[in-house]
Design a protein around this nucleic acid. Structure first.
Lengths: 200, 200
DNA sequence: CTGCCCACCTAACGATCGTTAGTTAGGAAG
DNA sequence: CTTCCTAACTAACGATCGTTAGGTGGGCAG
């Protein structure tokens, strides 16, 4: 991870520290030390600690949204894909964003609550909208008969938190590749919801 | 939730605050205010902030373990239950512990990392041992043909984080009862892993 | 009535928090 | 050579952190 700007290096260091110790468990001086600088010197590049958190969370939210948007772009009217394929695509997109940058994804998943005021509100709404994509595809799948009947709210929460749990254990150098995890998760998610096969 | 001892009231208040703002986002004075006492007065009932966290985390770990142990006690040699039924029992037990006290469960799931030294080590090991129960039942199920072949590590992580995610959204007064959630989650978990039906 | 204990108080400790102010060294631009 | 900008520095601000010390009052045991 070659740093181009100082600001980027600071956000990378902050992501790692927020991931490891949480937002309020990390001090400004901790972040500064990680980039070999005095605590006060950070403020030449950053307006506040909250601002660093916001940058990380907002950009990661955008990455999740963009990945999901790309699916709809590839199949605007839902003609090509069945609901099962669409759900698989959502799962793969989500896993991809997480594995692309676990630390930032982890901060997004766990530390957005540390945001204050309207920024927290905004992220809460964008998270809701994102989760609604899962709810909708599940509800559509049930209506169309591809999925067996379950509660779409509980089910989307089940699946999405399973995907988000990945930020707690994924290691880029680990035994399981990002690809292998995406395969397994897509498989598990689809089997969890799909209706029993009626014919071959 | 009628409090019998002061100590219990303190742990309840601390659980709620740790759940809402995290361990390091909660001050000793915050906890004290919640039980209508001065910050320093807490130390008449508690030896340290870490100690409060430890009490909450350890007792909750014990509750998860006891719930899972009860399944093995009910079927010591695994003769009665198939692997599918065993997995369902594990899921139901886990959901039950979470819904019995979401706040404590949430602290256990998210804040055990704030423990220090050997206590953190101990909880890490007990978490591993608990997760191994899921891994084992999945691996056994695959070996016996009841479950389709998947990676037991990724699968147990998938399922367990889905269950743990419940601490983020379960509300006792919510639309979905603890029972309904347990039903849905058990159903999703089993379908996710079980082999396609070969005959009726 | 006396004495003790328990729950709580106020005051304060040193450390650390996020942040501001003012300064300095070094390189780029004129 | 001078001027300016950038990136860093040191010093310090008031607030808050977890925790300790010592005092006070009220109920219970003798």
């Amino acid at each position: 991870m070659v740093e181009t700007t100082r600001r980027q290096a600071i956000e990378d260091a902050a992501s790692a520290l927020f991931h490891a110790h949480g937002y309020s468990g990390t001090s400004v001086r901790d972040i500064a030390r990680a980039v070999d600088i005095q605590g006060a010197s950070l403020y030449a590049h950053v307006t506040s600690k909250q601002d660093v958190l916001w940058s990380i969370v907002e950009s990661t939210a955008a990455r999740f949204e963009a990945a999901a948007d790309a699916i709809e772009t590839a199949d605007p009217d839902g003609a090509t894909f069945g609901r099962g394929v669409y759900l698989i695509a959502l799962v793969r997109a989500h896993v991809g964003v997480v594995t692309d940058d676990v630390e930032r994804a982890s901060v997004f998943v766990h530390e957005w609550r540390a945001l204050q005021g309207s920024r927290r509100q905004e992220i809460a709404e964008r998270r809701d909208a994102y989760e609604r994509r899962f709810r909708t595809v599940i509800a559509d799948g049930i209506r169309g008969g591809a999925f067996h009947a379950v509660d779409p709210v509980a089910t989307s929460a089940f699946l999405l938190t399973a995907l988000n749990g990945l930020v707690g254990w994924y290691k880029p150098e680990g035994r399981l590749s990002a690809r292998a995890i995406a395969d397994t998760f897509a498989d598990l998610a689809l089997r969890a919801v799909q209706a029993p096969r009626t014919s071959p």
